[in-house]
Design a protein around this nucleic acid. Structure first.
Lengths: 205, 205
DNA sequence: AATAATTATTAAACAACGTTCAATTATGAT
DNA sequence: ATCATAATTGAACGTTGTTTAATAATTATT
């Protein structure tokens, strides 16, 4: 019942998130409890409440970490200038990132069940950064900074999110034999081909 | 501490799911507890465990109900034979279905966090039925029963799921001003246009 | 250097949760 | 009428998230 100073506040923060991630990947999301994290880092549950407002906030910060890690993975990819090829490159990396870690995909990559206005700026920014990578891959197809480009990036982002979501939950294999990569490729190819026809011929309907 | 027979097993089942849905829509998902449902239907918590193995299973059945309701809503739409128009009709109905009920979309339309092989057949069937509606709308574009048609339906389904997911969590408004319907339209239009080019010209790469 | 203020840490407690179970009583079968 | 079966319950168990008063280490002030 005393002060310790074995770790700084920042160290404690990292320690807690490390422990939380380890628990989830080794024993599943349901094993993640405040007491368990506290035990694993050698502190009492109360200490966690000095770092985070509550468990939910701790998990929220863990989600932030996942966004960071995905950003790092996607950033490593070098783009060729061929939009379709580059989009597919990013799609592949995205799917690979979560492969073998369905627990992370299922529980740490979901949107919050909260009004978006309550999302802190640092979290919004992490998402924006991710979508921006995709938008960059679309640069060859659009003049810079157009709303069309942003919109296309968002549709691709949301579409891939959906594919990855159904894949992680095993729902893809329910109905079709098509795997996630196959579907992602179909999305990228056809959506981009469709964009091309839009740009060229304006007299559709 | 006695037997009652005020309601049959089936009535009790419906009563419980009614109560659960009411609690969620009125007070949010976090208010949904076994004790609360029991209180609302005038039984003790133990009775719920005579109906369902556990709370999770009860929620699972509630999810089945949501799938049924969505199926009913989508089935009412009459298709015109114009694929793009019909797909958009279905997309609109889908988005409208969850509008104003984000709690349902967020918590009762998520894939399970379980191995797909554990999903009971009745649940798989409900999902299949939904995707089949979408596949029907693609009939004008493909010979019946082709894997291409099924695949296209699944990509559209997953894509819409992603859009609706990010929308429900408010993440769409985070980065762009494009709303869900707008994005759904972009997905439908461009993906279908892309499909058309695929069918016609086979000499891409 | 001594004292005061602040901060980190903890053990213990609280209320609420999911779930189980022995006891009890109504129903259905013999 | 009797027996078996099934439904219902209250009470209990273990666990959870969270709060709090007490305690001791650090930091600030003099």
């Amino acid at each position: 019942m005393a002060r310790r100073s074995d770790h700084s506040r920042e160290e404690l923060y990292e320690l807690a998130l490390d422990a939380a991630a380890g628990i989830i990947s080794k024993e599943g999301y349901s094993a993640l409890t405040a007491r368990r994290v506290a035990t694993d880092i050698g502190y009492s549950p109360g200490t966690l409440y000095n770092l985070f407002a509550n468990l939910e906030e701790m998990i929220f910060h863990l989600k932030g970490r996942v966004l960071d890690a995905l950003f790092t993975a996607l950033s490593k990819k070098t783009l060729t200038g061929n939009a379709e090829e580059d989009v597919m490159k990013l799609f592949d990396e995205y799917l690979a990132f979560f492969k073998g870690q369905p627990e992370f995909r299922t529980h740490l990559f979901e949107p919050m069940a909260l009004p978006a206005s309550d999302l802190p700026d640092w979290y919004r920014q992490k998402i924006t950064n991710l979508v921006d990578i995709l938008e960059t891959a679309l640069a060859p197809l659009f003049p810079a900074g157009t709303t069309e480009r942003a919109k296309a990036a968002h549709v691709l982002w949301a579409g891939l999110y959906g594919i990855s979501s159904l894949d992680a939950s095993g729902q893809l294999q329910l109905v079709s034999k098509t795997d996630a990569r196959n579907m992602a490729k179909s999305l990228a190819t056809n959506f981009l081909a469709g964009l091309a026809t839009d740009t060229h011929s304006r007299g559709k309907k």
